[in-house]
């Protein structure tokens, strides 16, 4: 518990990075939603479809959650603060666990912020609220927050495995924006790849995976990465 507090405090006391990521994400979400609404020629009427389309921009929060997870581990290696962290908590699996929880919390907060901004934009832009099913909106919100939390954990796992900040972030981008999209075109059964699984979760299910199925597969990836990362961290010399 105290390790979790320490991890959250680490995020809180590096406001430039933390706020920078939050504002960066909000900028992306704002540009996406406002751009989409502005591009519509007719007057936009509030409908479930429109709202779902808008909320899909908020799904970018998962990518930011992933980066936060990576940073939470790799900046400690980069700045050498892992030494002090392990001196205070020589049982390293607890440190990785605390980092996973902190990143999950941060990912959930990012997702919630992205959703809040999207809903605010929708509210300001569109006057007609009659057609909205709030139950469905809340379900989407819940799925996005869950996705942010899961991807935060995945980020910690990747960071713990790779350890180099630059390498980990390059790896994440190459995989999610180049390799996996390619594989998805080329191979069948690629619906079980991590990016696809997460998409199934955020978009409420596809042909193969339901949203619950997507959540499950994504969680398996995240936990597997965190476990491997823990093993790697236990072996490592901090020299």
């Amino acid at each position: 518990m105290r390790l979790l507090i320490a991890e959250l405090l680490k995020l809180w006391t590096t406001p430039r990075t933390t706020l920078g990521l939050l504002l960066g994400m909000l900028a992306v979400v704002a540009l996406g939603t406002v751009g989409m609404l502005a591009a519509a020629t007719d007057e936009v009427r509030m409908s479930q479809t429109i709202l779902d389309d808008l909320l899909s921009f908020a799904a970018v929060s998962a990518t930011f959650a992933l980066i936060v997870g990576v940073l939470v581990v790799t900046w400690e290696w980069r700045h050498g603060t892992m030494t002090e962290t392990f001196l205070a908590a020589p049982r390293r699996e607890r440190v990785v666990g605390a980092k996973a929880l902190a990143a999950a919390a941060a990912g959930a907060v990012l997702a919630a912020a992205a959703v809040a901004l999207t809903l605010a934009v929708a509210y300001v832009w569109i006057s007609d609220e009659a057609a909205v099913d709030f139950g469905a909106v809340w379900a989407t919100v819940g799925r996005l927050v869950l996705a942010g939390a899961i991807w935060g954990v995945l980020g910690v796992g990747i960071g713990a495995l790779v350890r180099s900040q630059v390498a980990a972030i390059v790896l994440v981008f190459v995989w999610f924006f180049v390799l996996e999209p390619l594989l998805r075109v080329l191979i069948e059964g690629s619906d079980y790849l991590p990016g696809a699984a997460l998409q199934a979760l955020t978009e409420g299910g596809d042909d193969v995976l339901s949203s619950a199925g997507g959540a499950l597969v994504a969680t398996v990836y995240a936990i597997a990465a965190a476990l491997l990362g823990t093993l790697a961290t236990l072996q490592r010399d901090v020299a």
């Binding site: 390790l3 405090l9 006391t13 050498g80 030494t83």
Partner: peptide, 25 residues
């Protein structure tokens, strides 16, 4: 313990560096 390689996050203040350590301990 104080180890030779001074380790610190450059963006954190001195007090916050210690607050993190105090929380962990």
């Amino acid at each position: 313990a104080v180890l030779e390689a001074t380790s610190y996050h450059p963006g954190r203040s001195g007090r916050n560096h210690l607050r993190v350590a105090a929380a962990a301990g």
